[in-house]
Amino acid sequence: MRRKRFYVALLALALSALVLAQGRYQIGTPLSEQEVQEWNIRPSILANGVGLPPGQGTVDEGAQVYATHCASCHGATGEGGAFTRLVSEPFPITKEVDSVDFAIGNYWQYATTLFDYTRRAMPFATPGILSNDEVYAVVAYILYQNGIIDGSEPMNAQTLPKVQMPARALLELDPNTQKRFPWIRLP
């Protein structure tokens, strides 16, 4: 029995030395400093617009960016496709509303969050490829499609924080539970 334990311990020691000597898993390649900086987007965009980068975009420009980079997943006008729909009527979220009906127009509380998320995570297959101007433009287009803005002025660091999202009222806490959505159970 002792001999068996000895060999098991010896085998474990040899395997750990092998892993340490050759690298942990031997998959992937180390990132260069330039690659790290491309993904290290700072600062995050706050609800009041602090951290928004320079640039601007119009609804018409956004329609072109959307058609090129977004329509294949979210539908031609944002009504939904392979992925989540982006456009909806600004109806209130209640217990009866299925989460598949949540969209930017009825669920997102801040337009600046839409900019930050789009800049970091979209398009899905190639996140981060959009310039700041393109992100401003596609955000303007999506807000216009949801009926939140009239599209008369360009979207930029000054105009975006002023957009009043219909779902802003969802930030009110339920008086009984002190939660925003007491009926939603998160895992």
Rank of each mutant, 00 (worst) to 15 (best):
M1Y: 15
R2A: 14
R3K: 11
K4L: 15
R5Q: 08
R5E: 05
F6Y: 05
Y7V: 14
A9E: 15
L10Y: 02
L11F: 13
L11W: 10
A12D: 09
L13A: 14
L13N: 05
L15I: 10
A17R: 09
V19P: 13
L20E: 15
A21G: 04
Q22N: 10
Y25G: 07
Q26D: 06
I27E: 15
I27S: 14
G28V: 14
T29R: 01
S32H: 12
S32N: 09
S32P: 05
S32I: 00
E33P: 06
E35M: 11
V36E: 02
Q37K: 14
W39T: 14
W39Q: 14
I41L: 07
I41N: 00
R42S: 07
P43G: 07
S44R: 11
G49Q: 04
G49V: 03
V50D: 13
V50I: 12
G51D: 13
G51S: 11
L52T: 01
P54M: 08
P54R: 10
Q56N: 05
T58H: 03
D60W: 06
A63V: 08
A63Y: 12
Q64H: 08
V65Y: 04
Y66W: 13
Y66C: 03
A67M: 12
T68V: 09
H69V: 10
H69Q: 11
C70G: 13
H74A: 05
G75Q: 13
G78W: 08
E79N: 08
G80A: 12
G80D: 15
A82S: 12
F83T: 12
R85T: 00
R85P: 03
R85S: 02
F91W: 06
P92D: 15
I93P: 00
T94E: 10
K95Y: 11
K95H: 07
K95L: 09
E96C: 02
V97M: 15
V97N: 15
V97D: 15
D98T: 15
S99Y: 11
F102L: 04
I104Q: 10
G105S: 09
Y107T: 00
A111Y: 09
T113E: 08
T113H: 05
T113G: 01
L114V: 08
D116N: 07
R119C: 03
R120C: 02
R120L: 01
P123S: 11
P123M: 13
P123V: 12
A125T: 15
A125F: 06
T126L: 13
T126S: 14
P127T: 04
P127A: 05
G128Q: 07
G128N: 07
N132F: 06
E134K: 02
E134A: 01
Y136S: 03
Y141C: 01
I142F: 01
I142L: 04
N146R: 05
I148T: 03
I148W: 04
I149N: 00
S152R: 03
E153C: 01
P154G: 02
A157E: 12
Q158Y: 08
Q158A: 11
T159E: 01
L160T: 00
Q164L: 05
L170T: 04
L170D: 07
L173A: 09
L173S: 07
L173G: 05
D174L: 07
P175Q: 10
N176V: 13
Q178S: 13
K179P: 05
F181G: 06
P182N: 08
W183Q: 00
I184R: 15
R185H: 13
